[in-house]
Design a protein around this nucleic acid. Structure first.
Lengths: 128, 128
DNA sequence: GCTTGACTTGGAGTCAACTCCAGGTGTTAC
DNA sequence: GTAACACCTGGAGTTGACTCCAAGTCAAGC
């Protein structure tokens, strides 16, 4: 599977995919004789996993560390789980903060709605 | 209220507060005769609002634009509401993506739990 | 009167995460 | 055979959001 295909499928640019490989977030992808990358199913799965984690704000270095542990086999299972648990906690905290922001936005929007409604009813002119 | 106080209260560094003023995210804060910033209640409220929005990932330029509209008075109410509604939608989308990541993390963690449990029961050695 | 500490400024530096570019190769279409 | 196109590389540039720094001012404590 060529990089353009993976790019289209994943929505990540070819540049980003090459960048991910370069920094060791993706493993060295196989090449066809002419040197062109040939992503296999596992590579694509990894891209999807990375995409999902990145979208939620997990930093790249954490992911690199995680995959390095995966590489080292079963004796790193505890450490890997620890990383996931920790990142989960950070994620939950971020989501909580975002929920508060959402509540505030909803409040503000409803206030604007009220104001607009009043204006439309021409009850009074408004100043800031 | 001096910058150090606002910094402590808000958790934003004095450098960040000055930076916010410099780029026009905060209005020009009043100064005491010797040129030292003296934040008033409104400034502090704005800092809190900014903090909340930034934590949720709203970009600085959007906030600058929003405050510029506030500055222009009541005729910009519709436009301001539009910004909030749009940012709200983006926020909800981000939260949704994060929820998916959270689900995936939970799944992965539970798989690791199973593996660890099995290992501890010495049912079998594990390979990657 | 001198040190200490908090404040000021303009400007430069840093960081994460891309993103772009120039110059080169290899395959396909006419 | 040559133009168009997708790919390659190493390296530089960009973006957003800070963060740090040097050099200076001022008030308070000793």
């Amino acid at each position: 599977m060529k990089i353009s295909t993976v790019s289209k499928q994943s929505g990540l640019s070819a540049d980003t995919l090459r960048y991910y490989e370069r920094i060791g977030l993706l493993p060295e992808v196989n090449r066809s004789e002419n040197g062109i990358r040939d992503f296999n199913e596992l590579d694509v799965q990894r891209v999807e996993f990375i995409k999902c984690m990145r979208r939620a704000g997990l930093p790249i270095d954490v992911l690199i560390h995680y995959f390095a542990l995966v590489q080292q086999g079963h004796r790193t299972i505890e450490a890997r789980k620890e990383i996931l648990v920790q990142q989960r906690a950070l994620l939950v905290a971020r989501m909580k903060a975002m929920q508060q922001t959402l509540d505030l936005l909803d409040h503000k929007i409803s206030v604007y709605d009220d104001v607009v409604l009043k204006t439309e009813m021409e009850i009074a002119p408004l100043e800031e």
